[in-house]
């Protein structure tokens, strides 16, 4: 398996939220961003608030890439999310 493919298969993109409307919206936009970027990975949706708190955060929703929070407490447009994903992979 070549290095790049291995990397993308192991990339972890998560949306963590308390289950509120904004959280679901962020999850949907992130899924769309991932498919438009043709990344071969799934977006995980986590509603366990303790997970957010354990990351040291207190706002929801959170977008985390490889366990690192990259977006906290806001829902930007899809272009911004694509940019964030590209910057953090």
């Amino acid at each position: 398996m070549d290095g790049e493919l291995w990397y993308y298969l192991n990339m972890k993109i998560q949306v963590l939220g308390s289950g509120c409307a904004a959280c679901k919206k962020l999850f949907e936009i992130t899924q769309k961003a991932v498919s438009e970027l043709k990344l071969n990975t799934e977006v995980e949706y986590i509603t366990d608030i303790q997970k957010i708190v354990a990351m040291g955060l207190m706002r929801s929703p959170v977008l985390a890439i490889n366990d690192k929070p990259v977006l906290i407490g806001s829902v930007p447009d899809i272009e911004k999310i694509k940019k964030i994903i590209q910057e953090n992979t």
Partner: peptide, 13 residues
């Protein structure tokens, strides 16, 4: 109200 719980948990913990 959507951040009340994470706030409370985060502060106490």
């Amino acid at each position: 109200s959507c951040s009340a719980i994470p706030l409370f948990l985060g502060f106490i913990q």
